[in-house]
Amino acid sequence: MTARPSTAAVRQIGPATGFFLVFFVVPLAILFAMSFWTQDGFERIPGFDLANYLKATTSRLYPAVLLRTILVGFVTAAIVVPVAYALAWLMRFTFERRGRLILGVVLISLFSGYLVRIYAWRTILGTEGLLNAALLQLGLISEPITALIFSPWAVMIVLVGLLLPLAVLPIWSAMTNVGRDHVEGARDLGATGLRLHRTIILPMVLPGVGTAFALSFVLAAGDFVVPTMVGGAQGGTMVGNLIANEFRGSGADWPMGAALAFVIMGLLVLVHLVTTRLLRVVTRW
């Protein structure tokens, strides 16, 4: 009886595991190996060379773009997570039954078309866009705000809208473990307002908050469509653009693109580790 379930389990788990191994683990491993190759003209030369990584960290272009990517990703996540937290809290404890409906509506926006939402923001934020037109008509501004589009700000405005619904999910599911009695008990003991959240609620939902932060941070920093569409050539380029260009651009250099991909993923993991540590310290005060 003990041996049979385990062989059955292996048989059932096998196909999906195999799929992940062949089409996820192996390709990533190959990509990693390729990041140590070099490229001469159109020829890729296998080998073990740190040149791409050196170029990524010391050239004039790459470090600035990497830093901007990290900053945009971090700020986006730092806006998305508190809003998602507030939303989850309100849905659970203020709107109660209607909370689930609100959650449903928020999640529907997740499936309203990735490209479409990005493109529509261009219509809203453009120099002749809806927002500028509205502000002009209201007399709040005398000429269009050009920084609304083709800037890191535009990239963050769009990313926040794309990632917020995704970040609500893990926080909401962590929040379902918080009971009304927890909240009332904490209130009776004198923890109210911000203190209630910092000392009682936040520690309880910390795993969810961590997941939400990591998801929004990684997905924001790894996006290349948003900076392509609303980032502009000047200040909005992110590392995703550079990586995409190395794979589909004219002067394609796969090894360099691969190295950039691993540099940004490494940096993301690093920043994430530091952030979760800090968050833990803050909630322990």
Binding site: F20, P27, G222, A244, A261
Partner: peptide, 21 residues
């Protein structure tokens, strides 16, 4: 957790890794 990993990697990286593969 392991089965969720592909969702935590940017689609860009999944895309180029598959293309290289």
């Amino acid at each position: 957790t392991a089965s969720l990993l592909p969702a935590a990697v940017p689609a860009l990286v999944l895309g180029i890794a598959l293309a290289v593969f």
